[in-house]
Write a protein that binds this DNA or RNA. Sequence first.
DNA 1: AATGAATTTAAAAACGTTTTCACAAAAACT
DNA 2: AGTTTTTGTGAAAACGTTTTTAAATTCATT
Lengths: 338, 338
Amino acid sequence: MPATIKDVAKLANVSISTVSRVINNAPNVNPNTRKRVLDAINKLNFKPNKIAQSLTATAFPAIGIVSLTRFSNEAFLPLILQSIGEVADKKDYEIVLNTSKDENQEIKKCISMIESKVIQGIIILSSKVNDPLIEKLYEMKFPFVLLGRYTNERIANEIYSVDTDNFADSKEAVEYLFKLGHNRIAFIHGPLKYVVSQDRLSGYIEAHKEAAIPVDYSIIKDGGSSIKEAYLAAKEILKNPNPPTAVFVSDDSKAVGVYRACQELNLKIPDDISVIGHNNYEISQILSPQLTTIDVPIKDLGIIGTRKLFDLIEGIPTEKRTILDTKFIKRKSCKSLI
Amino acid sequence: MPATIKDVAKLANVSISTVSRVINNAPNVNPNTRKRVLDAINKLNFKPNKIAQSLTATAFPAIGIVSLTRFSNEAFLPLILQSIGEVADKKDYEIVLNTSKDENQEIKKCISMIESKVIQGIIILSSKVNDPLIEKLYEMKFPFVLLGRYTNERIANEIYSVDTDNFADSKEAVEYLFKLGHNRIAFIHGPLKYVVSQDRLSGYIEAHKEAAIPVDYSIIKDGGSSIKEAYLAAKEILKNPNPPTAVFVSDDSKAVGVYRACQELNLKIPDDISVIGHNNYEISQILSPQLTTIDVPIKDLGIIGTRKLFDLIEGIPTEKRTILDTKFIKRKSCKSLI
DNA sequence: AATGAATTTAAAAACGTTTTCACAAAAACT
DNA sequence: AGTTTTTGTGAAAACGTTTTTAAATTCATT
């Protein structure tokens, strides 16, 4: 049986209150006594029971992450988890994972963790267009930070979030292609239930509007959330009777599917077709030719988002919405037609 | 302030013991009383405080996962986390993540979670050759399950683990290449500090031994843990004055680097060079030509490993070591030379 | 030396549950 | 009817801490 505070008290011949004071570095404890207690603690290898500590604090030091499935297939899960971990570690908080697959279970699990006092805050990894989880958490006034953007007008400006400007970045990429002389550009996006997919699509459309180039929905396709789906989408697009001269993919890993489709159809990148990706995953440098893409500071999203969450938890005033800078990275997958 | 058991007791006009009995579905409570209590619980939206519950149980229902960095770059982190989550959810256990980067911190964090009573068991995602964490946990007799194999003779047979037979699978792949008439086969492996990398290398070597084909270490290279490193390794190997006719890569995602290297050097797969991967990630079907590989049941590793851990926690006897079946998947990346 | 203030300590209450023990009431036996 | 068993309930202790209150000790001041 591990030692408790009582054992320490007995051995050091003091009361448990004194031991508690020593543990918590309270002032007002005689240096001699402190030493005696510290010795006892060492001798017994005493470690305070975190559960018991949180009972009086009425809060267990942990934050929740919701949820893996919001982008389970994406290359950045490890990065984002690790960056969240870095910040949480410094605060000596635990990270508890919500791995729920379906939406109902996801919410239920969250509420349960909150109500049973297991977590003090939540990081939401990505937002859906009408996100019942976000609505619910907002309504509960429970501290949470969204890594993304929420669109529901009523509360969009009220929630705390960290994001990049997907709309602008997407627009910029398309404009770059316009400048290169492309005016028939395909777009392969992720599942439109996610706001990030919507935003990237909107940027694509807005660029067209501003350039007065009509949007052709026959070359805009859902690339799902797997490489294979993107590959299938690309193949369909490229077989279009009036094929595009460029394709913009909303995720580098989906670009792998596009490259494959091009290869199969004997289309040379960038000579026959230009490609741009998004996110700047490692793979974008390995693809041949190297992929032009938009660098998203994934680790910073995690770090800054988690810091914001701790500000919320600790009642420190913090900016509602933080937009992180991105960088358009020109590589070898685009060709000028002019 | 959320309702406590006392509030419920008062409203239902019973003692807190009775409420507790209702919460825990104890027998011996009058149907009428039970109904009254249930009504009160609903009216107050009472949810037992898990922290308080675990204080008396002297154990918080959670398991730890150690650690992300043990294969942060691999495609199967989401899968494994999710499969662990599935099982833990059923048991109503939380999953707490250890995201430590360096080895010392990893151990410290683990010990701390154990000693402060935050977790009841640990899943170790992968083993190192001399793994101080495993040694320590074993010595502490703390319940843990390794997803992999441990080599330290003294305790190898004592620890609980789930794994595939990396040695045999690797050997089989090489033998397949032999049968196809290849006898100069390169090997690109992962970091040798991990047992899985060692085992896959050993299988490669053993196949050579049995076939009485000398092992040439100039075409065996460390592909690190990134696609880029694998790409670099492949390039070096392929430039060998006496180049191999096939390359076996210990991870499908590394195979992407190999494909890229071949392309750059104008080597056609499988005509000029055959390639075999390992793990059967989604990417292996997207690569062109589709990659011959070894299917590893990733989700099953997680599910069976976590079940085993719960057996340990609950004191149910369970098999020490479980080996899962794999499947050699022939696709288009190998050519017969005969 | 007496008073008051500051420091240090102990005792006890509290956090929200579960569990043990005791006892009353009801039911089942003689 | 009297005795035993079963059922249902409440009071109190326990889990391992922190926090509050109060008391004892030390120290400075007069």
